Amino acid sequence: MYQAQTPAPPVVTVGIQGATALRSHTIAANSSTQTTVNVLVAAGVTLLGIGVLAVGAPAAGIVVHAHAVAP
């Protein structure tokens, strides 16, 4: 009996650009048909002369560059 093989998800590398605050990204999902990237932005805050990071929030105006290759 023939069983169709599901293609393996690609190996994805991600680069982000835009905004001046600290940015972090994670690949939230990766399949053979789509890749979802979650980008957070956190502004630096100075509190009593000490620099701290604010809580991350979903980023707007960010360009995500993704490069996918077969595994």
Rank of each mutant, 00 (worst) to 15 (best):
M1N: 13
M1E: 11
M1K: 13
Y2A: 04
Y2P: 09
Y2T: 09
Q3V: 11
Q3W: 00
Q3F: 01
Q3E: 11
Q3G: 05
Q3K: 15
A4F: 05
A4K: 13
Q5F: 00
T6I: 12
T6A: 14
P7D: 06
A8V: 08
P9A: 10
P10A: 09
P10L: 03
V11A: 13
V11K: 08
V11T: 15
V12A: 05
T13W: 01
T13N: 10
V14K: 09
V14Q: 06
V14M: 05
G15T: 14
G15I: 01
G15C: 02
G15N: 12
I16V: 15
I16K: 01
I16F: 02
Q17Y: 03
Q17M: 00
Q17R: 14
G18E: 10
G18T: 11
G18V: 03
A19I: 03
A19Q: 15
A19R: 15
A19M: 06
T20C: 04
T20P: 00
L22M: 11
R23I: 00
S24W: 01
S24K: 12
S24L: 01
S24P: 00
H25Q: 12
T26P: 00
T26R: 15
I27L: 02
I27M: 03
A29E: 12
A29N: 07
S31W: 02
S31N: 11
T33N: 09
T33C: 02
T33R: 09
T33I: 10
Q34E: 09
Q34H: 10
T35S: 06
T35Q: 02
T35V: 15
T35D: 02
T36A: 10
T36K: 08
N38Q: 14
V39I: 14
V41L: 12
V41E: 15
V41M: 10
A42T: 09
A42W: 04
A43V: 11
G44E: 12
V45I: 14
T46D: 11
L47Y: 10
L47W: 08
L48I: 07
G49I: 12
G49H: 09
I50N: 15
I50F: 11
V52Y: 07
L53H: 10
L53P: 04
L53S: 15
A54F: 03
A54N: 13
A54R: 08
V55F: 03
G56L: 02
G56V: 05
G56Q: 11
A57T: 12
P58V: 10
P58S: 13
P58G: 11
A59K: 09
A60H: 12
I62M: 08
I62H: 08
I62G: 05
V63D: 06
V63Y: 01
V63I: 14
H65E: 02
H65I: 08
A66P: 00
A66S: 08
H67N: 08
H67D: 01
A68G: 13
A68N: 03
A68C: 07
A70W: 04
P71E: 10
P71K: 07
P71G: 12
